[in-house]
Design a binder for these strands. Structure first.
Length: 308
DNA sequence: GTCCAGGATTCAG
DNA sequence: CTGAATCATGGA
């Protein structure tokens, strides 16, 4: 395997600067599971079928790709939302009146929701249940290496549904998937017959999208919310995992609330970019940087509203 | 050994 | 409908 020849580093010219701490959280904070920290401090990985590297350099965020890659810059600018749509959405979040959100947002300035493709998000979060981020990354890397198309160097695309559905049991088991192997195979078998599934799903309103996602094996409320947020750009989606449960209990006084109730609270309280607010809180909570001040103690709704 | 992880599914009530 | 048990694996 010939070593990869990289282009020189080039600036991305962001709407808002991204410090190294924010970049680390963005590339390895539980959104995508495809990026690794290289010895030189840069983040190296594959998005879609494009290998790339990014780093927080002396002149802001910089990128490079293997020589010969076409459209890598355009794709990366989209992936990282360089154009700044999320900068405006973040500004519009209620951080002025919410000191918990304000401190979480200040801890990770410039943090963005990665605009992953649906395939990447779905495979990643099918592996995510009851697993830590590091282990999810290992599982996804094994899937790509064993079943994904080689992209040069040691880079591999994520496996197609056809490759997953046709994989030997021993191969999947060697990816440390545990019981999630059945989730992946089950979803692969259903989507194998729907090559346009991502386009069909993308045409749905968010409630219908969530319902369609949850009809897949291994996709429950939380995984569906993550795939909608990270894979389909539904910024209003508010995934509730164990960290968000703890963050909302500690900092918002919402002890004893069930996940569906917390999801309803998050969307009502944070609005159109609730998913982005969720990512600030998730990152702050997971890294022990969440403000402990209770900002509000709303009344618990009598019944969680069904997701429709 | 015990507990937990960006939970989902199945089953008892 | 809700809550508990179960699932496979690895790290703290």
């Amino acid at each position: 395997m010939a070593p990869v020849e990289w282009t020189s580093w080039r600036p991305l010219r962001l709407a808002e600067d991204v410090p190294a701490g924010t970049l680390a959280e963005q590339m390895d904070g539980g959104q995508s599971f495809r990026w690794s920290l290289a010895d030189d401090g840069s983040w190296v990985g594959v998005f879609g079928r494009t290998p790339a590297a990014v780093r927080s350099g002396p002149h802001g965020l910089e990128w490079r790709s293997p020589k010969g890659a076409t459209h890598a810059e355009e794709a990366l600018r989209r992936y990282l939302d360089v154009e700044g749509a999320q900068a405006r959405l973040s500004e519009a979040l209620p951080w002025r009146s919410d000191p918990v959100l304000r401190s979480a947002r200040a801890a990770y300035p410039g943090l963005r929701i990665l605009r992953q493709d649906p395939h990447e998000a779905l495979i990643g979060f099918l592996c995510s249940s009851n697993k830590r981020i590091l282990q999810i990354r290992v599982m996804v890397a094994a899937l790509a290496t064993k079943l994904g198309e080689p992209l040069g160097g040691d880079f591999h695309a994520l496996p197609s549904w056809e490759a997953i559905a046709g994989a030997e049991e021993s191969v999947l088991r060697a990816c440390s998937l545990g019981y999630r192997a059945a989730y992946l195979r089950g979803t692969a078998k259903e989507l194998l017959a729907r090559p346009r599934w991502a386009d069909e799903f993308a045409a749905l309103e968010t409630p219908a999208l969530l319902a369609e996602l949850q009809s897949l094996p291994g996709v429950g409320p939380k995984v569906a919310a993550c795939v909608a947020l990270f894979g389909f750009g539904r910024l209003e989606s508010f995934p509730v995992d164990t960290w968000v449960v703890q963050a909302l209990a500690d900092a918002y006084g919402l002890r004893g609330w069930k996940p569906a109730q917390l999801e309803q609270f998050g969307q009502a309280h944070f609005g159109a970019a609730a998913g982005l607010a969720q990512q600030y809180l998730f990152s702050a909570a997971r890294n022990g940087r969440l403000s402990r001040a209770v900002v509000s103690v709303p009344k618990k709704p009598a019944r969680p509203r069904p997701r429709k």
